[in-house]
Simulated assay, not measured.
Amino acid sequence: MVNFNGALLSKDSNILTHSNRGLKFGDALFETVRCINGTIFFWEDHYFRLMSSMRILRMEIPMEFTLEFLEGEIKRTVEKNGLEDDPARVRLTVFRKDGGLYSPETHEVSYLIEVSPMESPFYLINQGPYEVELFKDYYVNKDMLSNLKTTNKILNVVASVFANENGFDNCLLINGDKQVVEVINGNLFLVQGNTIKTPPLGDGCLDGIIRKKLMEIVSATEGLELQEESISPFELQKADELFITNSIQGIVSIGKYRKKEYGNATAKSLLGKLNAKARLG
Rank of each mutant, 00 (worst) to 15 (best):
D12P: 04
S13M: 03
I248T: 10
R258L: 11
G38P: 07
S103P: 02
V78Y: 15
N147W: 11
S53F: 03
G167Q: 03
I210V: 14
L124N: 12
L224Y: 15
F95E: 13
E108V: 02
I154V: 11
V252G: 03
E225W: 01
S103K: 12
L23Y: 11
Y102P: 02
V33E: 13
K153Y: 08
L201G: 06
S269M: 14
G6R: 08
N156T: 03
E31K: 09
N5W: 04
T77W: 09
N126H: 07
I74F: 09
E64V: 13
L226H: 09
R34V: 07
K153E: 05
A7C: 04
N156W: 05
I40D: 07
H46P: 04
L242S: 02
N275W: 04
E241I: 00
N166R: 09
R55L: 10
D240A: 09
R21M: 13
E44H: 06
K142S: 14
V78R: 15
G167T: 04
N170E: 15
S52D: 11
N164M: 13
N185T: 14
G193Q: 05
L242V: 05
I36C: 08
R21A: 06
G208V: 01
T17L: 03
I74R: 11
A159N: 01
K149I: 04
C35L: 08
G99R: 10
V158K: 00
Y111I: 10
K136C: 04
L236K: 00
D240I: 00
E165I: 02
K238S: 14
L224P: 06
K256P: 00
V115M: 03
G167W: 05
I244H: 05
D169K: 06
K142T: 08
K212V: 00
P200A: 09
E182V: 10
E84H: 11
T106F: 02
S160T: 12
E225L: 08
L201W: 02
T150F: 04
P121R: 01
G186L: 06
E105M: 12
R89L: 10
I61F: 11
N20Y: 12
F135C: 04
I36E: 11
N3P: 11
K260D: 07
L67E: 15
L280S: 12
K212Y: 06
W43A: 15
S230T: 12
S110T: 00
R89E: 12
V140I: 09
Q179K: 14
E225K: 10
D45W: 03
V181P: 00
D45Q: 10
E68W: 02
I231W: 08
G186T: 15
